[in-house]
Structures are given as structure tokens and as C-alpha cells.
């Protein structure tokens, strides 16, 4: 809390910014109690990459035949999402059992308090009531501030397109789900490595699994409270740092940037006050200047002023 106090005193000194810093931010939109999520169990994932194929197919991205996705040579290097993929699976060495590598699927985590939603200049991102974070191409101006803001480095951008480049990331298959289907990756997963359900429920399942098989899982549900919680959560037998999941603090991703914004702009009070102050200053100094000029011009009125 030391940090915040320091900020407050400091900001108050310049622009009375502390006025409204307690105001709740707009992205605190009410989330449904029934909002959904996915629990990824890396112990159950076999790295078949069928989810990658299903995702591409569901989102009309170019994909080769499903059989080609069994090729495990792609695991030789760590991969990230790009303009042609919204999810990828990576392979890591298993510390518990060298013969059995760990596979980790990555995609947008659908944060509870998303930084992209907070940051986007035109509000092209939206946190839906059901938990999904979606992007609206009709608004986006391509500034890539969402990519700067995202703590998981998820959104990708079409760098080689001059016209209508897209920001891409997992959309939690909102279209499919609106039609009563499961997310494509969950649907195809042969091994129950991806469990879809109410977020609340998933946290309970994850805790049970971790507790019941404490030798197989480390006691950490990644995403339960990182950056204020995410819709996608992970359990694993390996330390998440080893699986290249970023070690993140527990405060919501937008951090204090929203408080600062709302502090500076608290109902436009600070800017208007500054405006008024400057106006008064301008008027006073003008009068003084005029008085000095009048006296300097040999005006012998001899009233107050002049000195």
C-alpha cells in the first residue's frame, strides 16, 4: 500500500488528482454468477494438438488435415499464437518423469478484470457477462495497445496487411456456445484435459483434484487468482514457471491505471478547477500589468498600486 499512498500524495501536489481516485472503474461490470470457464489439466493432456486443428477449423483459419497435427516435431521449439492460430500446444520436460513430457495448451485466459478491455482506446474489447472476452472488428483502429496491456501477451496482429489488419485471439467460441455447442477445443479433446463449466464449479473441481492427488499435482491453481482471476485455469504436476506461464501478481490486470485516469478526471473537477485557477491568474496579472503601464505613462492619479 506504500506505493499507492506515495502516488496519492505526489499527484495531489500537482493537479489535485487524488480527488476521485477511489472511484470504481467502469470495467467492474457485473459478471454473471454462472459465468463459464475451462479447467486445463496438463496431467491429462497428451499433446495430440487436435484442439489446434478444431480451433482453426471453427474460426475459418487455414488448417491442413487433422492427421498432420499428430506430427510432434513441432514441439522441438516453443511456439506462440500468431495471425493464423488462436491456440497452440507446447511440450515441456516433465520433472517427475522424464519419459512422460508435459503438454500445455495456451490461448487467451479471458481475465475476470481484463487489461485489454480497460486499455482499448475505442472500447473494441468487451467482457461478456458469461466470462468471454471478445473483440469487435468494427471498432478496432489497430493501435495495438491491447497487446501492450495484456499480461499474458495473447493478442496477435496482422503485420503484413496494409488494409484491415486484424487483432486475433481466442473468442471462447461465443458463436458456437450461443448455438448450444461446446468450445471447439473442448469438444474435440479426447482426454478430458479441458473441462468446460461454471467457473465457480471448476475452482471446486480443481481444488478437489489437487487435494486428492497431492502427489500428482502441485498446490497451485494457475488463474484462480492471478491478475484478479481468469476464466481459463490450469492445474499441473509441474511448477508453472517451468511451463513458461508468466508469474503474475494477484491484483487485477488494469492495475492502478484506471484509478489514475479517474483521479485526474473525477467528473472533470480537476481540469475545470485548473482552468478556473489559470483564468483568475491571467486576469490578476493583466490588471497588474495595466496598472504598471498606466503609472509608467506618467499617469498621476496616485492611486494604490504601482509599487
Amino acid at each position: 500500500m506504500k506505493r499507492r499512498d506515495f502516488f496519492k500524495t505526489a499527484a495531489a501536489g500537482v493537479s489535485i488528482a487524488a480527488l476521485g481516485s477511489g472511484k470504481a472503474a467502469g470495467s467492474d461490470k457485473k459478471l454473471s454468477e454462472d459465468r463459464v470457464g475451462v479447467l486445463v489439466d496438463t496431467n491429462a493432456c497428451v499433446g495430440c494438438r487436435h484442439c489446434e486443428w478444431a480451433c482453426k477449423t471453427a474460426h475459418q483459419l487455414p488448417a491442413s488435415d487433422l492427421e498432420n497435427f499428430n506430427d510432434s516435431s513441432v514441439f522441438s521449439e516453443y511456439r506462440r499464437m500468431d495471425a493464423g492460430s488462436l491456440t497452440v500446444v507446447n511440450e515441456f520436460e516433465n520433472e517427475e518423469n522424464k519419459l512422460l513430457p508435459v503438454h500445455v495448451k495456451i490461448q487467451c485466459m479471458h481475465c475476470e478484470r481484463p487489461a485489454c478491455v480497460s486499455a482499448c482506446i475505442v472500447g473494441a474489447f468487451e467482457k461478456r457477462e458469461d466470462g468471454a472476452v471478445v473483440w469487435d472488428s468494427g471498432k478496432c483502429i489497430g493501435c495495438r495497445y491491447c497487446m501492450v496491456a495484456c499480461p499474458f501477451q495473447i493478442p496477435t496482429y496482422d503485420y503484413d496487411k496494409a488494409i484491415q489488419p486484424m487483432i486475433r485471439k481466442c473468442d471462447f467460441c461465443v458463436e458456437r456456445r450461443d448455438n448450444g455447442m461446446l468450445p471447439a477445443c473442448v469438444d474435440i479433446c479426447p482426454n478430458e484435459a479441458l473441462i468446460f463449466g461454471k467457473r465457480e464449479e471448476l475452482v471446486r473441481i480443481a481444488r478437489q483434484k489437487v487435494k486428492r492427488k497431492s502427489d500428482a499435482y502441485i498446490n497451485h491453481i494457475y488463474g484462480e487468482s492471478e491478475v484478479g482471476g481468469t476464466s481459463w485455469m490450469y492445474i499441473s504436476g509441474n511448477d508453472f514457471g517451468k511451463l513458461r506461464m508468466p508469474p503474475l501478481a494477484l491484483n487485477p490486470a488494469p492495475g492502478i491505471s484506471e484509478s489514475i485516469q479517474h483521479g485526474i478526471f473525477a467528473y472533470f473537477v480537476p481540469p475545470v478547477t485548473l482552468y478556473a485557477l489559470l483564468g483568475v491568474m491571467m486576469w490578476v496579472t493583466k490588471r497588474r500589468k495595466d496598472e504598471i503601464n498606466n503609472n509608467g505613462n506618467g499617469n498621476q492619479d496616485g492611486k494604490e498600486g504601482g509599487k
Binding site: 486499455a119 483502429i141 496482429y157 485516469q261
Partner: peptide, 24 residues
Amino acid sequence: TDIGRFYYIWHPLIMWNGNSALFE
């Protein structure tokens, strides 16, 4: 020059996000 969809540079005028420092 830097924004990908330069022809939408006017969007912030009508599409507001008061939480965004960039918007401000």
C-alpha cells in the same frame, strides 16, 4: 502511420472508453 487501420483514426471521437489512458 503507426495505427494499423489509419482510416479509422476518427473512431475515438465517437467510440469512447473513459478507462483508457490512450483514449484520453
